[in-house]
Design a protein around this nucleic acid. Structure first.
Lengths: 200, 200, 200, 200
DNA sequence: ACGGGCGGGACTGCCCGTTGGT
DNA sequence: ACCAACGGGCAGTCCCGCCCGT
């Protein structure tokens, strides 16, 4: 048995998911998100509507899902133990976004356009970041001997997630021509500065 | 037409909305959000399902809506022009939350429990904060002669909104027994500190 | 306002229901019950599937429903107060079945064939008789001063309902050529005799 | 192949069925019938959903099925040939119900509660009694030289089945504290008396 | 404004046929 | 030969939109 779902079966599922996703994103780009029904996606992907929902729990998830998501966990594991959580987060975010931009810039642009323009998708993305923060807190607590400051961790994770959102939005406004990581750095820098103002 | 909706008509609408909301929250508390249908709410409020949607654009909004929301704009107008945006935001958030806790603590607790436990509502709340940030940026740009740093404004608004979410979650965990504003201060403090770590 | 739903609105609903039912029964007769989907019925009736379920709570109900069902209540009200419940039941059953056979023999035959051949429909019909018995018990208890023997009432109602089922089955076997009421009488007679055997 | 399913294979199947059933009934008692999905039952029983349907043709059957059902056939075979059918039926019903109450009163109570409260299950149970009546008629016809009065047999079987249902309902109302067979006798007695009224 | 009728799209649950792995 | 996984189909429910009459 494969440990983490690297088994044959899981790989096949991933391929199917990718195929459905690409059909869906194509239709979304052509006709818009709301104007595309799941039935149409299923038809384009040559599967039944029922099967669509077996691969994606909801229509929203077909946009949210990313083939490389599990890799993020590896990135996390690769960080040194004693690194402060905020730095870990920034590093992972930068690497993950750089990877996305490098591997498939056009695909990323399509996704980000949807993510920023369709309210339900924006909402789901932010929500995902929030739950990601929860997971991270749990993981960190377990990794270090003592309990971490959960409040600080959740707050900073949400804040950095928000910075990433703003960066993605700007990047999409410029049609993906700029360097995404640079925008992220700018957003984080602006946040840090604003917070310093607050203290004064 | 009255400017801000202080007209008679608007007041009557507000009363109806309050009535519908209180019935809805009662049912949500009894049976859960997903298990309560709009039809049931409408029946409890002695209106037709169709009318429900005239007062609230969606089922979610019946939880999100707050009678005192328009007051937030007054709070904003009352801040001095030269105050840095981050400070303005913090001040408004503190006043708004203090007002909510003072006026109707139990009601707030019911809402916050829903807001933190039902994913769609969590998502909508964060989404609302994000759009609020956009509005604020526009308002600030107009008020000061020059354009404000929109990136900084959006980032910090999202970050502070996230801090508020965390504070609300903690507050709800403790059954609303603690001081909400205190928790917000702690969350913001933790954020500022984490961001300082990042610079070093 | 009309008292019992004799209003214009209710009459229109009844017409629509009749139209849907006739299309459905036609399709059932042509292709069989299981082989006909609600979508097909809706298409044939020129309505949306969603609307079908507004008129009939389930696919089964389109067979079970009868335009003249409410008349049964009138029949019940017309019986003398002091009549023993068993006799009331027999009288009502005979009148109701006679009415059905007189008004639309072919339609009745189609329905009865479905009712006897499709297990789910058989089951629903027997279930309906059982709940009818409950209602009757309540009505009788209220009408007479004292409480009636509910056990006896429910048992006899179920038994007579079963006799009617058997009669309908025989009638359908003979393609509706015999007199339905006569068959019911035979079935009830056979039941009475068997029960006498039991006592001896 | 074993005749009656006393083979090793059949015994193993029965054990698995019992295990699945006990998990299912536990979940039904905890969360309700409709609120429990087949998937949950399968998970609790550590089998795949597909396998569930190999052991029970439908979700309903997991409640209906009884380990001792085949014994009923033995009971039937044990009755003297010349006994009138109605008496045979009463005798078998009494023995079967007595056996159920004796062997596992709490289990029976759980089942009966479901059978009386969930409409689809009520319906299925009555339907089963009706088909049982058909089988009995066939068996009796074969056993005695001549054809039996099929009408009488089916009618009386249905009537007695209905009496049993009423008895079970009463028994469940009293939390299984009374004697089930006594209630059945009362129900049959009430039926006989009512039918006598009818003749007069 | 309000109620009612209707449509439509997302999604779930039950159940079945087939296929591939053991 | 069994059985888990996979894919499909249908009933049914809910949210929410539009249009009409009042």
């Amino acid at each position: 048995m494969a440990e983490q779902g690297y088994g044959l079966r899981e790989r096949k599922r991933t391929r199917t998911r990718l195929m459905i996703q690409s059909e869906a994103l194509r239709l979304f780009a052509e006709k818009g998100y709301d104007e595309t029904t799941v039935e149409e996606i299923a038809f384009a992907a040559a599967i039944s509507p029922r099967t669509f929902f077996r691969y994606f729990p909801s229509k929203e998830d077909v946009v949210l899902w990313d083939e490389y998501d599990p890799l993020t966990l590896d990135l996390l594991a690769a960080r040194p133990d004693e690194e402060p959580p905020a730095q870990t987060l920034v590093a992972i975010m930068r690497e993950a976004l750089a990877g996305l931009q490098r591997r498939d810039p056009e695909g990323l642009l399509v996704k980000v356009r949807l993510l920023t323009s369709v309210p339900e998708l924006r909402a789901r993305l932010m929500e995902q970041q929030a739950t990601g923060a929860q997971l991270l807190a749990a993981q960190q607590a377990e990794r270090r001997g003592q309990a971490v400051d959960e409040i600080a961790l959740r707050v900073v994770a949400t804040a950095l997630g928000g910075a990433a959102m703003v960066a993605l939005d700007l990047w999409q406004t410029e049609d993906g021509k700029t360097d995404l990581v640079g925008l992220v750095d700018r957003a984080i820098g602006a946040l840090a500065e604003s917070m310093r103002d607050l203290q004064a």
